[in-house]
Write a protein that binds this DNA or RNA. Structure first.
Ligand SMILES: [Mn+2]
Ligand SMILES: [Mn+2]
Ligand SMILES: [Mn+2]
Ligand SMILES: [Mn+2]
Lengths: 221, 221
DNA sequence: GATATAATTTAGCTATACCTAAATATGGGT
DNA sequence: ACCCATATTTAGGTATAGCTAAATTATATC
């Protein structure tokens, strides 16, 4: 079986939405994720449903079936493998690779991606800290990781991921000297705007707004 | 400007056909190359013509304009770079890479392909002996190369390319121990069926039929 | 110069994948 | 139990990219 780019993107969107807690992706949420319109999603979901890749209870959301989940996971695997390749071997920056991976993830070949995986020695994480599924769809689970926004004061943590892979966000982090592995402690939180003040080995009293602290994933050490 | 997969494939087909001597690709020849129908080509050519990528004189063939030629060359560059990467770095065999490259060649990014080129240290030939255009479209010209079928008796030559990249043909060559660089001499030619008998360092009296000798490109030493 | 053959184009149809605007259904709150 | 804001679907349209079958056109041969 081979699926179209749009089908794969739709399955991936549903995966991402349902993974983030939602109990079934709404037509609207999927449309937002795909930057398309709800009516287009209705049609796409109908087709995916006929192919047995999703379960759709109108007004109650779309869920991936087991085959649908397998395909979505495979697309995510490919995306993350390519991002890793582009950064580690072609010397792209972490803020440059997402859009390229959006194209490359649709190349139709398990063999290619398994060889790419092997070539890189089976990397476990992509440049943004996201776990890379192995060929059976298994990946390291991120238990213990949480948004910086939810870290208690005076806890030593290190950055393990970013929720937002947009160039703008990643460039901001670069500009602040924050990257995967950077160790941080929350010194103060301001109720006024939910901003947090953090310190690292290199920098003291760095003020991060709520948007930033929500999009930084960290893990206590 | 960004072009669709079908547009790129059509331009590439016209390039290949006109390169092989034809004075303008006929609708039928293009259709055969693309494994599509003449009527589909008519429509495609109309669109390419409106975009200024081809000149079409009905019943006298389609020719690439300078912009059309640039795009076709770029697609060929990408195809050959990917084939080289797949063979040299992911350990694919030379008979496995063509179809994958047909997909990868449409990834829309000069930056990616220039970096891939650099990563491989600017290879000059792909795994089938075809010259790889550089980022300005220039490539080594194959003057002096000719089909084995046209080599005079007792001339020492070596294999520099294959005209046919199909898995079937390449597997046949593998099976006969013939590969790029192999040195050959034509011992005898048989008028009956245009077959030739060749010798290499490893093998004496190997009989090759016309189809094979036409698809093997060699160069005198 | 007429004509037949083969190449080419046109007409009309299908499928995917988008869109906007209009219609409709639902579930939470009253 | 009802209503309505909102989510969702339907209707109808566009563009790309195929297809088959029918019509048309040019060229090469007689
Ligand atoms: Mn990404
Ligand atoms: Mn990523
Ligand atoms: Mn090839
Ligand atoms: Mn090749």
């Amino acid at each position: 079986m081979t699926y179209t780019r749009s089908e794969e993107n739709c399955l991936k969107a549903i995966f991402t939405i349902t993974e983030q807690g939602e109990h079934g992706g709404s037509t609207t949420a999927i449309a937002a994720q795909l930057r398309t319109k709800a009516s287009s999603v209705t049609e796409m979901v109908k087709r995916l449903s006929e192919k047995g890749l999703v379960d759709h209870k109108p007004y109650h959301g779309v869920l991936l079936t087991e085959p649908g989940n397998r395909i979505a996971t495979r697309v995510i695997r490919r995306h993350r493998l390519w991002e890793t390749f582009l950064v580690n071997h072609l010397n792209f920056r972490w803020d440059e690779v997402h859009d390229l991976a959006e194209q490359l993830e649709h190349i139709d070949s398990d063999e290619l991606h398994d060889r790419l995986d092997k070539f890189m020695d089976h990397p476990k994480f992509d440049p943004h800290g996201d776990p890379i599924p192995d060929k059976d769809g298994r990946m390291i689970d991120m238990a213990g990781a949480l948004p910086l926004a939810e870290v208690p004061k005076d806890t030593l943590v290190h950055i393990v991921g970013v929720k937002d892979s947009s160039p703008a966000f990643l460039k901001l982090l670069d500009g602040l000297g924050l990257k995967l592995g950077t160790q941080l402690t929350v010194n103060r939180r301001f109720e006024y705007d939910n901003s947090v003040e953090v310190s690292s080995r290199f920098r003291n009293g760095l003020l991060l707004n709520e948007q930033v602290s929500r999009n930084l994933t960290v893990k206590p050490l």
